[in-house]
Design a binder for these strands. Structure first.
Lengths: 298, 298
DNA sequence: CGGTAAGTTGAATCTAGTCAAGAAACGTGG
DNA sequence: CCACGTTTCTTGACTAGATTCAACTTACCG
């Protein structure tokens, strides 16, 4: 019985005793709902209370873990600044990176159902997160129905992100995955106001490889190949995207990425029609040839 | 402006005009909230109203699509019977299978954020789904706060499922993926009361391959290898799991699947400790050797 | 009883992994 | 500021694993 209830505790909207988390988590300032919607790029009616209700923030230092896999679930987190990695940690110690949440991204949602976080979130930077104590949200969603919808949307967005990842891993080869990774990063940084074509990676080749299901050497080789093909310019963790279209072409030489593998959900969703090449009949190979890049580079 | 609002429409909890979906969707009977919680294996307090409120059902025939990628979002669906496949459809026509939702599984959640479904759901069987019109849920979640939590949990569960998939694709070789697929199916069918060690596949090798990021020939070979190793018995779509432990060993010869790749979320979550082999120091290879199987078979 | 779709199996090719060596960047302490 | 060690990254040669192409067998359905 206690096992069944432990799940339930974390979501018991009736009791609010867990609302105010631990003391260590309310060190800093806090932000309003209005700011939160801006952070998430989700528009909502301009109601007065948006400015009132506030969420606590928490600062996480470089290398520090926000939550550990197996910890009891209590809150969702939205990244406000900095960059994280979320990892499954195998019992034997080896890690599998699941994502690199950045500003506006959700963390911790895999803990809702089971009552325990399923992945560990480590900061790759000095970061700041907004704490959404799900138990305490009941009071708020009662006051404003649309706040409930906001949570659904954030969860859905995360789901789409992970689904896109499975598409990437399922259909693309090494260079395609790296290209998709770079385009994704480019889009997200662009959406935050940073340069879309020049940025610094916060993660190692190993971490990228773990994320993309590749070995670090393969990541390095793929980057070199894209570099030699003059599609990007790489020097250590400095990336310059020289030809974004060529980069997109690496992902699918002919046409269609399903619904914007690299696109942030905030961008347009239904851009059907247009992007249709003349010969959909040709059964061209699923794999973007790595050979093509090498020839291009020669 | 209209683009921004179109997203919002689907989740406008203030207006309930869309609540009663289309007429074609309320052909059959409907089920109570109590039945729904049973379907999802989520326990809730035994309140009287659980038996009252009801959701519509919809029957979907073999090969028929429940929703299409790009359709305007209106409802979530819970599979009540039968089996589906969800696919991203590339513009050029090639498909990537994202999952095989079965009884109790969620579909359609990828449409919440963008306002349009991102994947197509096709029935592989004569199936029946529970319709959860998200716009209409507002009224219900108002009446019962815990129903809101139910939706969060269902979304989280789906997220965990997809995350497990990325782990599978990122770390396992062909035979490991097929083994994980079979174990997953075995667990899910077992949880539904069917046999855990003998079942029929509803999908083709091609669909399995698409799901696992493999070609159909590779799936066939992997099944044959497991068959020759006497771990399973395969004949076309008939699967018999002879040695489930050996099958688990194919996924990770030594120890740790992160948190139960093959386990249904309904099963225990925190079973730490116990499953710890003596030598976690050995830096054994990430890949479950396909060679091992061939030797075993010889 | 054919015709078609699905599944199996083999041989050649190609991709990514493995092993290994070396180069470049970073941090620390002298 | 430089020497030093450590980590990260790059590159090459070789190998294991998955795809491709192709032939063939088996089921299924009119």
């Amino acid at each position: 019985m206690s096992a069944a209830m432990s799940h339930y505790d974390a979501l018991d909207f009736g009791s609010l005793e867990q609302c105010s988390a631990s003391a260590t988590e309310r060190e800093g300032a806090n932000i309003s709902v209005r700011e939160l919607t801006r952070l998430l790029h989700i528009d909502y009616p301009d109601e007065a209370w948006l400015a009132c209700t506030a969420f606590a923030l928490r600062r996480v230092h470089d290398g520090e873990a926000l939550v550990h896999s197996g910890d009891k679930f209590h809150s969702l987190y939205i990244v406000r600044s900095g960059c994280f990695k979320t990892v499954y940690t195998d019992f034997s110690g080896s890690e599998q990176v699941l994502g690199f949440p950045m500003c506006g991204d959700l963390m911790g949602a895999d803990g809702i159902d089971g009552g325990h976080y399923k992945s560990t979130a480590v900061s790759l930077d000095t970061s700041e997160v907004v704490i959404l104590p799900l138990t305490g949200m009941a009071r708020l969603t009662n006051e404003c129905r649309s706040l409930e919808a906001l949570l659904y949307r954030v969860l859905s967005r995360e789901l789409v992100r992970v689904q896109n990842m499975t598409w990437t891993l399922g259909t693309l080869g090494a260079e395609g995955r790296v290209a998709a990774f770079l385009l994704n990063l480019s889009e997200r940084l662009g959406a935050l106001g940073y340069s879309r074509c020049s940025f610094n990676l916060r993660m190692t080749r190993q971490e990228i490889g773990s994320y993309l299901g590749l070995k670090l050497e393969t990541v390095s080789r793929a980057l070199s190949a894209l570099n030699n093909a003059r599609i990007i310019h790489v020097h250590q963790r400095t990336i310059d995207i020289v030809d974004a279209d060529a980069l997109r072409a690496v992902i699918d030489p002919a046409a269609g990425v399903p619904a914007g593998i690299a696109a942030h959900p905030a961008s347009a969703t239904a851009r059907s029609g247009s992007n249709d090449d003349g010969n959909p009949s040709k059964p061209r190979s699923q794999f973007p040839s790595g050979r093509a890049l090498r020839q291009l580079a020669a």
